[in-house]
Simulated scan of single mutants.
Amino acid sequence: MALDHRRVPGPEESQAPLLYAVPGQAAPEAPGREAAALRPLLARAGLLSQAEGSASLELGGGTKVLCAVRGPREAAEGRGRLLCEFRRAPFSGRGARPRPGPAAAARERELGLALQEALAPAVRLARYPRARLELTALVLQDGGSALAAALSAAALALADAGVEMFDLVVGCGLCRAPGPGGAWLLQPSEAEERAAAARLTVALMPGLNQVAGLLGSGQGGPPESWAQAVRLGLEGCQRLYPLLRRSLLRSAERRAAEADPPQS
């Protein structure tokens, strides 16, 4: 049967959700929520049979990202390459659908390069000479912190594909509330991002305790304010790390059980 590539790829079968609640969390848009509160996280690896590796990640409040990895494939270059694509589904945003155009395409290319730069330090590209790895991150629903969610899901998909890595990459998004003395909020919602004076996405390799990437914009105040935001983001990444590792372990256990079913 021919495949319809115009459709959004999705899991071949329904799966029981595994919801990991992070201690100390609060509703994303609750009045007076804690600045360091993390949103509930649902992560799953190994969903798509047509890709070498895949993962989905959902954040409480409506952020849903699906990632797929293809390769390694032979390339003309003399070294291994990681190519990342960031896309938004037409129905991912709230309200009226934005019209596709040069500005939207340029923004997606920029976020794809941000994914690539943050993930490249974690992938052992020297093990894949003259080959390329292709990763696609698709935002199905943007409820805030979409790039950070895509970073974490992409790292899970690469690990699920069996790509040799130094460590997982965990992403955390932050935004600074408007007004003088506005506080930085961890894992902001879409409404909080829209009203923010500044945004920041932190990517960390927690096992090695190395920063893989930083992407910020807006008026974040003095350097001390940005330093505070980075520390808050790194702490959030460390708190999310065990949850992503658990998701990857469950995927490996499920595959092992499918490959070696119990004898009756």
Score class of each variant (00 low, 15 high):
G221Y: 02
G218D: 12
E108H: 09
G179V: 11
L115D: 02
R199M: 10
V230G: 12
A155S: 15
A131M: 14
S189C: 07
P188Y: 05
G173H: 07
A155W: 09
A114M: 09
A161D: 04
T201Q: 07
Q228V: 11
P222W: 08
P178C: 09
E190F: 13
V170D: 03
L208T: 10
F166K: 11
G220M: 08
A203L: 06
A103C: 12
A183G: 13
G182M: 06
L147G: 00
C175I: 12
P222M: 09
L204I: 09
P206R: 05
A106L: 14
P102S: 12
Q228H: 15
A203E: 00
A106N: 13
T136W: 08
A191M: 09
E134F: 14
A106I: 10
L111N: 07
E193S: 05
L125K: 08
L158T: 01
V169F: 04
D167V: 01
E193T: 06
Q210N: 12
A114L: 09
G182E: 02
D160P: 02
P129F: 15
R199W: 12
E117H: 15
G220H: 13
Q228D: 14
Q219P: 12
L147C: 02
L113A: 13
A154W: 00
D167K: 00
G181H: 08
N209V: 10
A137H: 01
P180S: 15
P129I: 15
S189R: 06
L208W: 10
E192C: 02
A191W: 11
A191C: 11
G112K: 06
A114V: 02
A183S: 10
A229F: 05
Q228E: 15
P129C: 12
P223L: 06
A197K: 07
V170Q: 01
A120E: 14
A203P: 10
C172K: 01
L119S: 04
Q187F: 05
V163M: 06
E164A: 13
P129D: 14
S189D: 01
V169Q: 00
G143M: 06
A114Q: 10
A229W: 06
M205F: 04
E117F: 12
L119T: 01
L119Y: 02
P178G: 08
G162C: 07
G233I: 00
V230W: 09
G181F: 09
A126S: 15
S152Q: 04
V163A: 06
L140S: 07
P180R: 14
A148D: 00
V123G: 03
L174A: 04
V211H: 04
A118V: 00
E192L: 02
G179F: 11
E224V: 14
D167I: 00
V170M: 04
G181L: 06
A153R: 07
V230N: 11
V230A: 12
G162P: 10
A105L: 10
V169S: 01
S145M: 13
L174C: 08
A159K: 03
R132D: 14
P206A: 04
L125V: 07
L119I: 06
R130D: 09
A227S: 15
L174W: 04
